[in-house]
Design a protein around this nucleic acid. Structure first.
Lengths: 231, 231
DNA sequence: TCAAAAGTGTTCTTAGTACACCCATGT
DNA sequence: ACATGGGTGTACTAAGAACACTTTTGA
């Protein structure tokens, strides 16, 4: 209450990025193996301390860029972790930043030494409360994907309907009926069908679509919800 | 990334509480008029700097207690505000804590000098980015009330169905059909009807109910969602 | 010609919405 | 006896769920 700034103790503030990627039909997490103490040799989320001239999201995007060379990545705040003893090294709070990366069209991505994509189904142990962060982030992904077209951040700009369905099945660990999925999806009227087909997964080929972000935004402002099914 | 703790700058970390109360059919916000600089005479959310031996939620609950004498109040993290220039006095990030208080059964609440409940419909200007925090919190309240029985935090332990409906109508700024509201609500099977009636608002009286938290928790674990209607 | 994935329609079931009157009681 | 808020049931409509076969084409 008393904002007598001078006599207040300052605290270390970090960001840690929970970065999900999707490629080859598998949902993955980006982590790196620490080369220096503390926690040398252990897996950790990618993070950084926040400097005086950047916001948490800026710091998150900065480290993500430093590590992968990627820019313009979907990122939102997840939660702030403030338990007094969460880091034995020092009192340090961490702002979790939740990020999504489509891996199919980012083949040129940098992969630095010690940085690796891990299948969600088979994660290594992570330092500190990073595992909790991943659990929280997965929940966020599932909750948000129900009502927002956030899943599309994990796909290339042009994608097929079977591809999208497979992604949803991976996210929710649940199978959907192909006919109902397609019917519901197209009834939302926010996909643009392209001329071309993607023939990489079948001989017949599947039509490519693009998401109509402008139309979606307009609809959203009118109260429309992007909802594919009841979970 | 480099957790070379010693050479990293520390930052002021505050909590600001967005405290909603509900009484006399009106949704209200708790704020206080600053008696000291900076921002003397201006309205502000209730907040504090975080000390080295408390988490953000503990700090939030601490100030809430200091200001109102209230304990065991619903509180969750809203969002962390980290813009570099959000506080002209110093680089300072603030963790927004979202809280709900039912006012009907807290008549004994302390009301300190300068602290006031303001109708949401008629808020004063607030310092810094506090107005943004309130906007975000209202959105959170609406989003969360759709799928979680969070609205009950704003009512006394024993409440009537018309009372609950009025609350929802206040939160969503929307009228609901009495028959459909009651039907849907009771179909969830998580309210316990009591013997007594509340006769304060009508001659006939309305039956009192209690929420069955245990039953709700069990159902929730099985995937049940507390959802009253499509918004 | 056949294997493999893409694409398509109908019926049934469930949940949501719209709507109007009687009930209990204190004054 | 009447005014006031509490309580109830039914018919219609829309959305979700279940379900199996045809199409295309490269090898």
């Amino acid at each position: 209450m008393d904002k007598n700034y001078k006599y207040v103790e300052k605290i270390l503030v970090a960001v840690d990025c929970i970065i999900f990627g999707y490629g080859n039909g598998v949902l993955k997490l980006l982590a790196f193996k620490r080369a220096i103490t503390p926690f040398k040799g252990e897996w950790s989320l990618i993070g950084s301390f926040i400097t005086s001239n950047e916001s948490a999201e800026e710091a998150g995007k900065r480290v993500l860029y430093e590590i992968t060379g990627l820019n313009h990545i979907y990122m939102e705040e997840l939660k702030t972790y403030t338990k007094v003893d969460r880091d034995p090294g020092a009192r340090c709070i961490s702002i979790g930043q939740f990020a999504l990366v489509g891996l199919e069209d980012k083949k040129d991505m940098m992969v630095m030494n010690g940085v690796e994509w891990h299948s969600i189904a088979n994660l290594p142990d992570l330092v500190l409360d990073h595992h909790q962060m991943v659990t929280d982030a997965l929940l966020r992904l599932r909750n948000k994907a129900q009502f927002y077209p956030i899943g599309l951040e994990l796909l290339p700009k042009q994608f097929t309907i079977p591809q999208l369905q497979t992604l949803y099945e991976e996210i929710f660990q649940k199978k959907f009926d192909v006919r109902n999925f397609r019917k519901k999806l197209l009834s939302l009227n926010i996909l643009i069908q392209l001329e071309e087909k993607d023939k990489t997964t079948s001989k017949k080929g599947a039509f490519l679509y693009e998401f109509d972000y402008l139309k979606y935004k307009k609809l959203k402002d009118k109260g429309f919800k992007f909802s594919l099914f009841k979970i």
